[in-house]
C-alpha cells in the first residue's frame, strides 16, 4: 500500500487530498497509467504530466523514478512559493 497525496488543482480535480493505493507499479509513470485507467477525474488530473511535479517520500523526483520501497508519493503542479 502506498499513500498517494495530491495538492492544489490536482487535489481539486481528483476530489481527494490523499488516499491509500494498492499497487505493484514499478515506476511513477506506471502508477500514473494505473490511476488514469480508474476514472475520468484521474484522467483529467493526469492528462498532461509535463504540467505536473512528483515527490517520493517528500523529495522531488522524476516520472521514470522507481517506486520500490516508497511509502508516500505526492503529485502537484509546479510550485509557486515566495
Amino acid at each position: 500500500m502506498m499513500n498517494v497525496v495530491y495538492f492544489a488543482w490536482v487535489r481539486e480535480r481528483i476530489g481527494l487530498p490523499q488516499e491509500q493505493v494498492d499497487t505493484n507499479a514499478a515506476t511513477v509513470a506506471d502508477l500514473v497509467e494505473e490511476l488514469k485507467a480508474r476514472e475520468d477525474r484521474y484522467e483529467a488530473a493526469f492528462a498532461d504530466i509535463s504540467a505536473l511535479r512528483v515527490a517520493l517520500d517528500q523529495e522531488l523526483a522524476d516520472f521514470d523514478a522507481p517506486l520500490a520501497g516508497v511509502k508516500e508519493i505526492a503529485f502537484f503542479p509546479p510550485m509557486t512559493g515566495g
Partner: peptide, 14 residues
C-alpha cells in the same frame, strides 16, 4: 534563497 523558495519549496498560491 528567493529564487529557490519560489520554485522548489512546495507552496501553491490560489
Amino acid at each position: 534563497l528567493m529564487d529557490y523558495l519560489k520554485s522548489r519549496a512546495p507552496f501553491w498560491k490560489k
